[in-house]
């Protein structure tokens, strides 16, 4: 599975947990729009730290960084170089 599919599947799982089964496009806002709350975002943060070695304590982050599939992909890209 490529990185984009991995990220999509994680977000799908988080949305499902909140009872949100609506579809989402890669550019759709999920955090700023309130579809995912801070606890969901925390799962996302921990996942990105473990899977991609992103050090949020060091670099900090804004909600926009994790707002959509596209913004997460760009975050992974800037940390690791182009995704496979």
């Amino acid at each position: 599975m490529n990185d984009r599919l991995i990220v999509r599947s994680l977000l799908r799982g988080l949305l499902n947990q909140t009872g949100d089964h609506d579809d989402f496009a890669d550019g759709d806002s999920l955090v700023m729009s309130g579809r995912l709350d801070s606890v969901d975002t925390l799962d996302l943060v921990v996942f990105l730290e473990e899977k991609y070695g992103i050090d949020f304590a060091e670099r900090g982050f804004e909600k926009n960084d994790l707002d959509s599939v596209d913004s997460i992909m760009s975050l992974i890209g800037t940390t690791q170089g182009p995704s496979k």
Binding site: L42, V45, E49, A57
Partner: peptide
Amino acid sequence: STAVFLERGKMLQPGA
């Protein structure tokens, strides 16, 4: 919640 979030996400560095 702010402290809870940062602590669980391991984002609270000592002396930060």
